[in-house]
Each structure stands twice: as structure tokens, then as C-alpha cells.
């Protein structure tokens, strides 16, 4: 069996080198050996059947194909978990890697291949080196900066990149802020309380409203109880409005005349406001014309005063 296995292994190695040929062979194999000529596809049932047969043919046999199957089965067992994958690989003819691994596995199992032995030694050395490196890394105290544990070569780059990003961000942020400022230009959030200016403005507005409401009150007082949209009331309203208008006209005329007189008196010679202090107080006031006489008369007789007063008023 050993011989056969070795032979087969060699055979396989030889065959594997071309690569594609093996696959084609694999695909062909089952149809040749196991099943009848009708079976072309291998489905799950067939796979199981083949495996069973392989187990049964555990001894040397003449048929090469059957042997191959046997070996394949061995490989499967050695690969362990990869069993199904392998079979699938056989079916799909797409998975080259798994097939290679399986080949290696078989070689190790045989122990005949010198190359494989060399590989393991190398791996051992490699693992030692790796262990040493890993341990040295792990024993290093990690600097507690923002970058974290990074390889030294990388660290510089990362730092540079971060700094660059920071600068970029800053520039972008400033530009954004400026834009926002331009957008919000003139926008002022009002205070929660009323300051003096607002109070003054409200006062002005209130005055205006009061003025209007009083005017409305005055105007609409005349037409109380009348509906302006009714034609009957309209005439009455018109009449009343006219009266109100004329009365209003008369009023300001009197007030304006008063204004005029005021202006006149003040324009003459800055006369004192209190009448008794003015120069012409005695002349303008008829009752005080003959104040000494009146006093005398009042002492003597009361009737003489009246005609005098009348005459003086007539003179004026």
C-alpha cells in the first residue's frame, strides 16, 4: 500500500503541475470508474455512494481509478473539516487552492516528501521569530497619545495627516462662520425686557391709537343708532355729519382768533402775563377807571356807580 500511495503521490504531483489537466481528469474520473455510463453529474447521493465504496476497497486493487478514489478519501479524512469542501472542489473544478492544500496534507501524512519536512522546519523558525517579535511588541509600554499604538514609520505620516486635516478644518470652519455672519447680518435677537426705547415707541403708538379712537368716537357719536348701509338712515347721517362738520369749523376759528390775539399781545412789548402789572391795566379795565372816585362814591352813595360804569362801557 505504501508503495502504491507513494506512487500515486508522485503521480499526482506530476499531474498537478500542468494544473488544468487535473481538473479535467477529476471530472472524468467518477464517470469512468464508479457509476455507469449514464451518470454524468455527481449529486449528493452519488458522493455518498462513492465514499462507501472507497471504504470497502480498503485494500490494494488493480483498478487504478478505484485506488485514486481511495486516496481521495484518505485525504478527506486527513483534511478533517474540509471534507465536504474537497468533494465540492472535485465537482465544481473551480477551487484550485483547496486541492493544493490537500496535496500537501497527503505528503505530510506520507512523510516521504523531503521538501515538506524542510518547510515545517522553516515554519518553526519563523514562528519563533514571530513569537520573539510579538513578545517584544507586547512588552513595550504604549505611549498614551491620541494616535495610539502605531508603528513608528506610520506614526509620522499619521501625525502629519492629522495636523493637515486640523488646519483644513479650521480654515473651513472659519469660512463657514464668516458666511453665517454675512447671512445673519443685521439680525438681532430682541431682549426679554422692554428697554426705554421700546417703551417710548409703544407710548408713541398708544398715543396714535388713542387719538384715532377718540376721533372715531366723536364722529360716530352723531350717528348712534343708525345703520349707515340703510338708505333711510343715510340722509339723517349726512345731515348730522354736516352739522358736526360746521360746528367743528366754527370751533377752530374761535381758537385761532384767540391764538392771534395771544400772538398780538405778546408781539407788542413783552407785556407781563398778569394783568395788573401791565401799563394799560387801568384804562382797559372799565371798573378801575375812577377807582378813587368809586371808593368815595361807595362811601357816600351806591347808586352813582352804575351810570358811570355804563357810559364807560359805551365809550369803549
Amino acid at each position: 500500500m505504501d508503495d502504491a500511495a507513494a506512487r500515486v503521490g508522485e503521480h499526482k504531483m506530476k499531474r498537478r503541475k500542468p494544473g488544468h489537466s487535473k481538473k479535467s481528469k477529476k471530472r472524468v474520473n467518477p464517470s469512468h470508474g464508479g457509476g455507469g455510463p449514464k451518470v454524468k453529474k455527481i449529486d449528493g447521493k452519488m458522493k455518498r455512494l462513492f465514499r462507501k465504496r472507497a471504504r470497502e476497497y480498503n485494500s490494494d486493487d488493480d483498478d487504478k481509478d478505484e485506488q485514486k478514489l481511495d486516496i481521495q478519501d484518505d485525504r478527506d479524512i486527513s483534511a478533517g473539516g474540509n471534507e465536504m469542501k474537497l468533494l465540492e472542489a472535485g465537482d465544481d473544478d473551480s477551487d484550485d487552492n483547496s486541492a493544493d492544500v490537500s496535496g500537501n496534507g497527503s505528503g505530510e501524512e506520507d512523510g516521504a516528501d523531503s521538501e515538506d519536512g524542510h518547510g515545517t522546519a522553516k515554519f518553526k523558525d519563523g514562528s519563533n521569530a514571530f513569537r520573539a517579535a510579538f513578545e517584544s511588541i507586547m512588552s513595550n509600554a504604549v505611549t498614551d497619545d491620541g494616535l495610539g499604538p502605531v508603528l513608528s514609520a506610520q506614526r509620522k505620516l499619521v501625525a502629519e495627516k492629522l495636523a493637515e486635516e486640523g488646519v483644513e478644518k479650521k480654515v473651513k470652519g472659519e469660512a463657514k462662520k464668516e458666511k453665517q455672519l454675512v447671512k445673519e447680518k443685521g439680525h438681532v435677537k430682541p431682549a426679554n425686557y422692554l428697554d426705554a426705547r421700546e417703551k417710548f415707541l409703544i407710548g408713541v403708538a398708544t398715543k396714535g391709537v388713542v387719538k384715532l379712537f377718540n376721533a372715531v368716537n366723536k364722529a360716530q357719536h352723531a350717528q348712534k343708532g343708525l345703520n349707515p348701509s340703510r338708505s333711510k338712515d343715510e340722509k339723517v347721517i349726512k345731515k348730522r355729519r354736516k352739522e358736526a362738520f360746521f360746528s367743528e369749523l366754527k370751533k377752530p376759528s374761535s381758537s385761532s382768533s384767540a391764538n392771534l390775539t395771544k400772538v398780538g399781545t405778546s408781539g407788542e412789548d413783552q407785556a407781563p402775563a398778569w394783568a395788573p402789572l401791565r401799563d394799560n391795566y387801568m384804562f382797559s379795565n372799565p371798573g378801575l377807571k375812577d377807582w378813587d372816585k368809586v371808593q368815595d362814591a361807595s362811601e357816600g352813595e351806591g347808586g352813582s356807580e352804575m351810570p358811570e360804569y355804563k357810559s364807560s362801557s359805551d365809550d369803549e
Binding site: 415707541l201 409703544i202 403708538a205 396714535g208 391709537v209 376721533a215 372715531v216 360716530q220 350717528q223
Partner: peptide, 30 residues
Amino acid sequence: DVNTVKLSSCQRIVLLNYNKDTKLIDFRHY
């Protein structure tokens, strides 16, 4: 129109106040 206006329709007021010193107009809505 003072004669026909309904007081219930006077709900809002717009105030424009001119400030002589600053030459600014305060625009308020009450």
C-alpha cells in the same frame, strides 16, 4: 374713514418713528 370704521377691525398698528439725530426709522408692529 372715521365715520364708518369699526373699532373691532382695528387690531394691529404699524409704527414708523423717525429719529432726527440718527436719521433712522424704527419700524414696529403691535
